[in-house]
Simulated scan of single mutants.
Amino acid sequence: MTPKHLAKIKKTLLAMQRSPRGHKSVEFEGLARALGRQPDNRGKEPTYMRRKDPELARPLSIPAHSVDVRVGTAASIIDALLDDVVQWEAYLRGDGDG
């Protein structure tokens, strides 16, 4: 993860946060992967975890549907991914353990 790549992800997430309607699960899955999360076999819905530096993030479920993710669910996923961004920013700065 580079600061430039992280800034691009953050910009995308902030735009999605302003308008959480109309996003597909594949968009969230791509962002989760970009933040170092990988699919993990647990729960009803696909769950994404960070295999490297797992202390930086808790498991994140992203519904796998062909329709748009509901606004409330999308907002929750966006918030969790933005928390990942904050943790990555601190990690890249070298602030404490992450």
Score class of each variant (00 low, 15 high):
86 V>T: 12
73 T>A: 12
90 A>V: 00
83 D>G: 08
9 I>K: 04
59 P>A: 14
92 L>Q: 10
38 Q>P: 00
22 G>D: 08
17 Q>R: 14
98 G>K: 02
10 K>A: 07
20 P>M: 00
56 L>N: 01
11 K>R: 08
39 P>C: 12
90 A>F: 00
75 A>N: 10
62 I>K: 10
82 L>K: 06
4 K>P: 00
32 A>Y: 06
91 Y>H: 14
90 A>K: 01
7 A>N: 08
43 G>A: 14
8 K>T: 13
84 D>F: 01
58 R>T: 13
74 A>E: 05
7 A>L: 06
43 G>M: 13
53 D>Q: 10
68 D>E: 15
80 A>L: 10
13 L>W: 01
85 V>I: 04
47 T>P: 09
9 I>R: 03
5 H>Y: 00
45 E>F: 14
36 G>H: 04
89 E>S: 03
2 T>W: 03
20 P>I: 00
75 A>Y: 03
26 V>C: 11
85 V>P: 01
37 R>A: 06
20 P>C: 00
85 V>G: 02
85 V>M: 03
8 K>R: 13
71 V>K: 13
40 D>I: 05
41 N>F: 15
58 R>I: 06
15 A>R: 13
31 L>V: 09
64 A>E: 14
79 D>M: 05
87 Q>A: 13
44 K>M: 15
14 L>E: 12
66 S>R: 15
59 P>G: 14
89 E>T: 02
31 L>Y: 07
21 R>P: 00
40 D>E: 14
66 S>N: 15
94 G>E: 05
55 E>D: 11
28 F>T: 03
62 I>C: 11
62 I>E: 08
49 M>V: 15
14 L>D: 10
97 D>L: 14
64 A>D: 15
74 A>T: 05
94 G>F: 04
54 P>Y: 08
5 H>A: 10
2 T>C: 02
25 S>I: 05
58 R>N: 12
23 H>Y: 13
3 P>W: 01
24 K>M: 07
8 K>P: 00
37 R>H: 10
10 K>E: 11
23 H>E: 05
23 H>M: 04
23 H>N: 06
67 V>Y: 11
2 T>S: 13
15 A>N: 08
82 L>I: 03
82 L>V: 04
81 L>F: 01
23 H>Q: 07
75 A>G: 12
84 D>L: 01
59 P>H: 15
21 R>W: 04
53 D>Y: 12
2 T>I: 05
64 A>F: 12
63 P>Y: 11
6 L>M: 07
13 L>A: 02
49 M>H: 09
10 K>D: 05
89 E>D: 07
38 Q>W: 04
4 K>M: 05
71 V>L: 09
22 G>M: 06
31 L>I: 12
44 K>R: 15
30 G>H: 00
32 A>T: 07
45 E>C: 12
82 L>Q: 03
92 L>A: 06
14 L>I: 07
2 T>G: 10
37 R>L: 07
4 K>E: 13
87 Q>H: 09
56 L>A: 02
94 G>N: 06
23 H>I: 03
31 L>M: 11
88 W>D: 03
14 L>M: 10
31 L>R: 08
52 K>I: 14
30 G>E: 00
47 T>E: 07
81 L>N: 01
92 L>Y: 07
6 L>H: 04
22 G>F: 09
30 G>N: 03
53 D>P: 00
53 D>V: 08
69 V>M: 12
32 A>L: 08
50 R>L: 04
96 G>D: 11
37 R>Q: 06
4 K>D: 10
69 V>Y: 08
63 P>G: 08
